[in-house]
Design a protein around this nucleic acid. Structure first.
Length: 272
DNA sequence: AAAAGGACCTGGTGGC
DNA sequence: TGCCACCAGGTCCTTT
């Protein structure tokens, strides 16, 4: 489920509850996530405390004194902070247990997520070093996307979802931002104009910012909800709305598949 | 070098 | 009710 807003909300929730707390114990019930969970994690993390947590794209980077715990939620991962004696439910694979009877519990039915450890500088890690710009930072501009796309024939939707170009734009928000920028999702990236990329960037930033603000409203419940973020309740214009009338009143939302992902657009608002 | 497709998993839904 | 095909918010890796 997680798109960038949920990852950001998760980061804030964990930090709020666990910053500077010391790990007393780590319990691994399932090592088979996207990559095997390192077996040395209990010894490595024990008696270390969380200095801070950064978000890079959809990765959560827990900084400890001796290195970083790298986590990605994949399609179905979530973290919750719970009392350490809370009974285990299905798919709750990992516990980091802290002082004060607090437990950071990782839940992931599909197991596409990961928990990894590195003691090298985090920006040099294989998964992190290759990432593109942050969507909410100043280095994502229309000009940047325009320059990066000049030799790219892939659909613009795939282009903006490529984490080597820009991180954190998932399927929902790619669809929504393209709609708001009036850009048809299948147009080859190299055919999109500078002006269109400027509009697109404006809407990517806007839609993610709004969603994070909404996700923030669930933050106070971080310890006792099951991680359902508020961002999904926001008003979506096209995502999941195939066959429904567009707000423009001129056409119905269409669904097509691009790069094996469901894509939604309004044929009136987003001309080829 | 770029693009396309496969791979990794489980759970929910809708059709028959 | 049961069975089955299909779909899902991600992204790395291999093949073309």
């Amino acid at each position: 489920m997680p798109e960038l807003p949920e990852v950001e909300t998760t980061k804030r929730g964990i930090l709020h509850n666990l910053q500077s707390k010391t790990v007393s114990k780590v319990i691994i019930r399932q090592t088979r996530l996207r990559w095997p969970v390192p077996e040395h994690l209990p010894e490595t993390l024990s008696q270390q405390s969380i200095k801070t947590i950064q978000r890079r794209g959809k990765y959560l980077l827990f900084e400890f004194p001796h290195g970083h715990l790298i986590s990605h939620l994949g399609m179905s991962g979530s973290f919750r902070v719970l009392p350490a004696d809370t009974p285990i439910k299905k798919h709750e694979h990992i516990d980091l247990i802290f002082q004060d009877n607090l437990c950071l519990r990782y839940h992931d039915p599909r197991r596409f997520g990961c928990l990894l450890w590195t003691d090298q500088p985090i920006e040099q890690h294989k998964l992190i070093a290759v990432l593109g710009v942050e969507p909410l930072e100043a280095d994502l501009t229309g000009e940047y996307l325009y320059q990066k796309s000049r030799a790219k024939r892939v659909a613009v939707k795939n282009f903006i979802m490529d984490s080597h170009i820009v991180v954190g734009v998932g399927n929902i928000y790619a669809n929504e931002a393209l709609f708001l920028a009036n850009i048809h999702p299948t147009i080859p990236a190299q055919k999109v104009s500078l002006e269109q990329y400027e509009q697109l960037v404006k809407h990517i930033k806007q839609v993610l910012t709004t969603a994070i603000q909404q996700g923030g409203t669930t933050l106070r419940d971080f310890t006792n909800t099951d991680g359902q973020a508020g961002y999904f309740q926001q008003i979506l214009h096209v995502y999941g709305k195939a066959g429904k009338p567009c707000s423009c009143g001129q056409a119905q939302i269409e669904k097509i598949v691009i790069g094996q992902r469901a894509s939604y657009f309004c044929p009136a608002c987003q001309p080829i």
